[in-house]
Design a protein around this nucleic acid. Structure first.
Lengths: 224, 224, 224, 224
DNA sequence: TATGAATGAGGGTTCATTCAT
DNA sequence: TATGAATGAACCCTCATTCAT
């Protein structure tokens, strides 16, 4: 084996190590932020949770805020980007897209339970401060809101939703319901069945709770 | 003027002073907790906001946590107690009660915008810790959840809601929607019209968003 | 009854009240200083112990240090003055005077257990600071030391004590033994019999602990 | 030089640094506790005295009380353990052991003047509180008392001491005399010759102060 | 005569951050 | 690549002190 190969392999090993450390630190931070909030989570705890030291955080992220920004960037890429791409590929009704929105994030909520909650929690904790992270969170929410508004307008134009439905407010309602649901889910922990909760939420959004004479559609598909 | 009268008047003055100080301190604390969260709000800021000094906080509340507990107690009394009493006096359908729930809290959200948000924010920030305040918040949420569950069961028994509607989960959905709405409202600030938001929320809950062949009821009452 | 008499009686009543309050405050302070030391005793605790408020302390004593000075003055008057007067009236041997010193203070230790200990504790806690109270304590100790040195010199001049006995150091030894005894007594609390302890101390000082061929004196008086 | 060696040397350097800092902090704390007592000594002063910052104290000791516990542990090891071992190796009379006790601690009082005084002062300041440190001090005193009682009983069994000598009380007398002596020494500072004081103390304990017809022993050895 | 409200200086403690190694 | 030692600003809290009543 040549020296270069050995060095290359060594470099590769280092990169892997590096990535592993970054991964563990962010994972630990995300978990703690979800559990106790950003301000209440200390770097010591984050480092402990990652099996590293405080110094390592500064080595990789330079500051606590930067670690947070990093997490937000990652969350935007892995959740929001994917979500929007997913919604864009769908060729269905607006109502179906909204259901898809819930389906998607609740799947995220199962596969990566913390990233999403972290985003939501950060949007609540940091309100009204001028920090970089808050602006970042604000931008992310604007993107989601924009997409939902687009879907709502689409639904109104196809006659699916009532023309009187206020688009901006209804986009907010969807976000409100979604975030509220995730928080309540987290609040109740194991007291509640997540799947039933999610289904109840988006069925409520679509059809409401008051019993109605079933429409022809409902009768045909056997929907509740 | 007799000594007793003079003393009584003096005592009264002191009581007023005391109440005014307590009121200003809690108001300042509530405002800051809503803006930046409990952990991020310092006693210095709270005292400054009340036009008093840190020492005054300890004179009245003994500790930061105790100040919080005091706020929670007050919030429970002024919001939750009143809400539940209000709902109990209503002689209407379950659906109407749920609408009343939203109407009530959104009125609260206007008249005392911070108490309610403070409660919601605390329910999010403090998750998973064993502090007294967290237990307190948990209890308060249990009360509201219990009341809503009762209403849902009532609605099912009168045939208003579908029998298949899961009571516990649906109570959570209402809370989720409510809290989510309040948070989104707060998040968007003046970008959004609160009244329209609230109306959109509870109409969505009751009837859903999908346009349906209007039922006879709807036609008669002119409901959307 | 004439008005003057009534006023006089009222004045008298006030004076009594005043004295009672002062008495209770100093008593409470002395007790606490003995229990936990001067620095660790807060005015709040002192006031509580007296059934009054912090304000009362300032009303009567102007400051915490002044309260202490007051206590020291009282202690000097009631204990040291009396002690020295008592020793001066005695027409006995020097050895007997030393025994009388122990007898006297241990009686004080029973009748007013705290004043004496307070003095001793203050002499230990405050070393090397420039506060007024420390100087005061120093003066008091100098008086006692001076008196004891006088007695020792007296004993040497009458041939009672060995001429080689260093007067100053031996005065210190007596004080050391005395203070050490009081502290050990306090340290052990009810574990030990005070009377036996005191007797053991001064008998040790006078005759030592090693068994000796009894002298004619001893044989006659049956000492040790 | 291999990497391991370099690392080892670096580790060693760190260990030295650590020990030096710990040593300086404890030394500073001990000095201050002796001078002004535990409660009156602030962490700022302690840190200043060690040429470090308050933060360093928490880095090494976690809390003020823990720093004190650390000091007590060290004092027990270096003074009490050594003392008891020393006494155990002696093959002499009980009287001689008591003299050895004084000789030992007064040597300690010269070589490490503060540790011993710190122990004594702490035994006085903390009385009657339930803190950990107080219990610790109590335990240490019990050990010394136990050892002394053992020696006294030994002396009585060999006929060296009078059978009537109360063992427990006499152990306390020795401690009283010892502690009182150390305190008086510290109280008087440079006004007094320490060596003469110590000699006067233990000679007084052994033989008392009253002049006696010299025994045959005394005549032979030339003892005072 | 004495209190209760309030202060402010300073106490112990926490925590993000720095830096030599 | 990562640590351990150390810092300093700011935190919650304590406590002697002031003052109107």
């Amino acid at each position: 084996m040549s020296i270069t190969t050995r060095r290359a392999r060594s470099e590769n090993k280092k990169t892997l190590l590096r990535e592993e450390s970054v991964r563990r630190l962010t994972a630990s931070a995300v978990r703690l932020i979800v559990e106790k909030g950003y301000h209440a989570s200390t770097l010591q705890e984050i480092a402990d949770g990652a099996g590293l030291t405080k110094g390592a955080i500064f080595f990789y992220f330079d500051s606590k805020e930067n670690l947070l920004l990093n997490i937000l960037d990652r969350a935007e890429m892995e959740i929001v980007d994917t979500l929007i791409e997913h919604l864009d590929t769908l060729q269905t009704t607006a109502a179906e897209k909204i259901a898809a929105f819930f389906r998607f994030t609740s799947q995220q909520g199962i596969s990566r339970p913390y990233e999403l909650l972290c985003l939501i929690k950060m949007s609540i904790e940091g309100r009204n401060s001028t920090e970089l992270a808050d602006k970042r969170v604000y931008q992310i929410y604007e993107r989601i809101r924009g997409k939902l508004e687009e879907i709502v307008r689409e639904g109104k134009s196809t006659g699916e939703f009532a023309p009187s439905l206020p688009s901006s407010e209804f986009a907010s309602v969807i976000i409100a319901m979604h975030d509220g649901m995730m928080l309540e889910w987290h609040r109740r922990g194991k007291d509640i069945d997540g799947k039933i909760l999610v289904r109840t939420v988006w069925k409520t959004i679509l059809n409401g709770v008051v019993v109605k004479q079933p429409t022809e559609d409902d009768r045909a598909t056997g929907r509740n």
